[in-house]
């Protein structure tokens, strides 16, 4: 009799845990990158060079990885819905790293000046090779690193 009770209790606990796990997993949010440390660090020009050399190889290495890039801030772009993109890289080159900023962390963006040397951390979503517009490595959900 006692044994039966214990087994029932274990099953109930397992169900409860399973339910809780499924619920929290279902509602899990995408990670805030300010709380995640970077998988790799790069100078902007080095990262761009890797994608320009072999896009497929660089995709295999860096897609979804949290990358911290350091370089010159070439441009700050703000759209009509207050989304910011920071463009980093060599000022004499058309190629850049474009960082789409996490809207939860834009207060630091507002004080920035072009020409500054900054480090930005973001999730790599890939590369757009473009002769006309200049090629870009894209980082998403970016935050500025101190």
């Amino acid at each position: 009799m006692k044994k039966k009770k214990i087994i029932l209790m274990i099953i109930a606990a397992a169900l409860l845990f399973g339910g809780w796990y499924a619920y929290s997993e279902y509602n899990r949010k995408v990670k805030d990158l300010s709380k995640v440390s970077a998988d790799v660090h790069f100078k902007t020009v080095e990262l761009v060079a890797q994608f320009e050399k072999d896009e497929n190889a660089a995709n295999a290495l860096y897609l979804d990885k949290v990358i911290a890039v350091n370089g010159t801030l070439k441009a700050i772009e703000k759209d009509d819905t207050n989304n910011y993109s920071l463009v980093l890289g060599d000022e004499n080159s058309m190629a850049s790293v474009r960082c789409s900023m996490d809207q939860e962390h834009i207060t630091k963006v507002e004080g920035l000046m072009t020409g500054a040397n900054i480090t930005v951390k973001g999730a790599c979503t890939g590369f757009n090779a473009d002769q006309l517009l200049g090629s870009d490595v894209i980082l998403n959900r970016c935050v500025i690193q101190d």
Binding site: E25, N27, K29, V30, K31, A123, C124, T125, N140
Partner: peptide, 12 residues
């Protein structure tokens, strides 16, 4: 469009 750039409310 880069597919990895789509942002969802839920990570899963």
């Amino acid at each position: 469009v880069l597919m990895k750039g789509f942002e969802f409310e839920k990570a899963l």
